[in-house]
Design a protein around this nucleic acid. Structure first.
Length: 326
DNA sequence: TAGGACACTCGTATTACATCA
DNA sequence: ATTGATGTAATACGAGTGTCC
């Protein structure tokens, strides 16, 4: 792409040089300034980069704003905390990522460490909600505790142990026998829809949002986190594809313009090389520069006969003639 | 106050499973 | 029934940032 642009600049210089040899640019009658043309082309491409087409990569399925509260997790025990608001954090949080990362307040928050599925050997629905017996919420009870680190460690250890237990139980006999198979969760349509809906609201989640959503969906916070990570990756991939397509088109445009400029350069060189109008052996009348013109529509350099130049009709445009020739 | 340790989250690449044609 | 393609949940890893000591 850059090579094309450089080549085009060189062409432009060459054209300008030839133009200067023929006379001034104005006297040439070039109706379209090549530099403007090139600049326009650059602008086209730069505009593309400045304003990349944004994809609407959000769910294609129309999702009702008044999404059902229970979001129909496969076997959901009715959660008393669920409301008709699909985003329970919404009125509460509006914080940027930098504010949400690992601050004390986040640890202080009612962090849900509900890993595991409550035991799901092979063949059992992986969407099974975490068993309340196995995966109770852990609440950091003393936010202002001096021993915050100890609390964290306890939570972390608890989480690891629980994950280990849940993983073992969820992986079933294969894992117990030393196999490495992993059961893959399939989110229900309702779960996916709510995740998409919340992604539309925030492409990233702070811990509280994550926990609230996980609770609502009867998933582990980690699963929600992973889903958002994958979703962001998919969005970026799609956007990259769109950008790539735009660049491809821009490249094609530049190639075409390059080809056209090459042709124009050849024409100008031919004019320069060709003997001017010979009146006699010792007198040369140079070809009037004004006989050169450029069609604004097809941007071709053409010549005009001297009659037309000498006696232009009312309303006559040099462009219209050359355009008509196109 | 500077700096190391730590926790947390992110993006990215990859793997592995489920589904479908 | 088998197989390859596709979609996607899950994992691994390194980087960035904030907090604590």
């Amino acid at each position: 792409m850059m090579l094309l642009a450089e080549g085009k600049d060189r062409l432009r210089e060459e054209v300008q040089r030839l133009r200067a040899m023929q006379g001034s640019g104005a006297s040439l009658g070039l109706s379209v300034d090549l530099s403007m043309m090139v600049a326009r082309s650059h602008e086209d491409c730069s505009t593309v980069r400045r304003h990349p087409v944004q994809l609407d990569l959000l769910p294609m399925l129309p999702v009702s704003q008044s999404f059902p509260a229970a979001v129909a997790a496969p076997q959901p025990p009715a959660q008393s905390t669920q409301s008709s608001n699909p985003f329970p954090w919404k009125p509460l949080f509006n914080r940027s990522r930098s504010n949400s990362v690992s601050g004390n307040d986040e640890v202080e928050a009612t962090e849900t460490y509900s890993s595991g599925h409550g035991g799901s050997p092979r063949g059992i629905d992986m969407n099974q909600i975490p068993s309340s017996a196995d995966c109770d919420e852990v609440v950091v009870s003393s936010p202002n505790s001096i021993n915050l680190k100890r609390e964290r460690e306890k939570i972390h250890d608890f989480d690891l142990e629980r994950d280990r237990a849940c993983d073992i139980s969820s992986r079933g006999s294969d894992e117990e026998e030393g196999g490495t198979t992993r059961k893959k969760l399939r989110l229900s349509k309702e779960q996916s829809a709510l995740l998409e809906e919340s992604f539309k609201e925030h492409s990233t989640l702070n811990p509280k949002q994550k926990n609230a959503l996980a609770k609502q969906l009867n998933l582990r916070p980690r699963q929600v986190e992973v889903w958002f990570q994958n979703r962001r990756a998919r969005t970026k991939l799609k956007q990259t594809e769109v950008d790539c397509e735009l660049l491809k088109r821009c490249c094609e445009t530049l190639t075409e313009e390059n080809r056209r400029l090459q042709k124009e350069l050849q024409e100008l060189r031919a004019l320069k090389v060709a003997p001017p109008c010979v009146i006699s052996h010792d007198y040369y009348m140079p070809l009037p520069a004004a006989t050169l013109t450029m069609c604004p529509s097809c941007e071709r350099v053409t010549t005009m006969d001297n009659k037309t130049l000498a006696f232009p009709k009312p309303g006559f445009s040099h462009y219209s003639q050359s355009s008509a020739a196109c």
